[in-house]
Design a binder for these strands. Structure first.
Lengths: 146, 146
DNA sequence: TTGATTGCAAATGCTTTGCAGCCGC
DNA sequence: GCGGCTGCAAAGCATTTGCAATCAA
């Protein structure tokens, strides 16, 4: 299910902030958008192995995050960050500890959290990062993927 | 505000699972419980510098997590894990990106998330990890801590 | 042309691991 | 005494950084 995100005009965003449009940035962007999964830097590097150096991938992802077009999470305990292109709908992550799958769950929940905190506690919410670990329906049904 | 957590019988928990009670495990446990903050391993190591080797701190924390008496989070983007003794009330973390403080927010929200997912989606929830980044009320009031 | 950006390689920092000696049981 | 634990030092990995060459504007 590639091309999850509505077409973001990467070139425009870059130029609007005074950054240059480079082949590498376009490639990283396409790799991010072309996947429906959360990608580790290693996975991105594998995709782009001969085209973009891993150091540039890191720098590019950092820039994308700054520009608000990409998002990181660290919900796996293997120490590796996972990236996705920024999604317009706020969502949270369902992490299955059995099969490793990470699903998005879109709903009003994140908005509820925001307003709850803004109104009740004077906390100005910038970013809600909600990860739920557990066992997904598929894994619960079939005992495992033996 | 030390001693946040109700007295957990560490010795009992360890023995119940066939682990040995050692001086180091007691010391790490006291250091964890004696702080109201989330501690990095470095901070723990500083507290216990001449008493417990850092490798043993890592191993001990891993064991504590397995036993359910300690909890890790990685909501700071500095790559360092932060530990706290397991709290009986489910809560989520308010991370102020201005002053770095991490507050707990206890409420029904986590329970809501649980039931929402269990009932609606067949997802068996093991662990809810909710981090909200933003600016705390104190930092919003006084411009900064200059 | 010019300075932002890249590639390469070295370095950093957190965390893990192998192993000999130690200590709880 | 036995086997689990610890300390020490040496890896392991993900990520960052210095620097000369490259390329977008």
């Amino acid at each position: 299910v590639p091309d999850t995100t509505p077409a973001t005009d990467l070139d425009g965003v870059l130029r609007a902030h005074g950054h240059r449009v480079t082949r590498q940035r376009r490639l990283v962007w396409e790799a991010l958008r072309g996947s429906d999964r959360h990608l580790t830097v290693d996975e991105l590097a594998a995709d782009l192995s001969n085209d973009v150096d891993i150091a540039s991938i890191y720098r590019t992802l950092g820039l994308f995050e700054e520009l608000g077009v990409a998002r990181v999470s660290r919900f796996h305990d293997d120490g590796a960050s996972r990236w996705e292109s920024a999604h317009p709908d706020e969502h949270f992550h369902l992490v299955c500890t059995r099969c490793g799958e990470v699903d998005h769950h879109v709903g009003s929940l994140v908005a509820n959290i925001r307003s709850h905190l803004e109104e009740g506690h004077g906390f100005e919410v910038a970013d809600v990062d909600l990860a739920v670990r557990g066992t997904c329906a598929r894994c619960r049904a079939g005992s495992d993927e033996a």
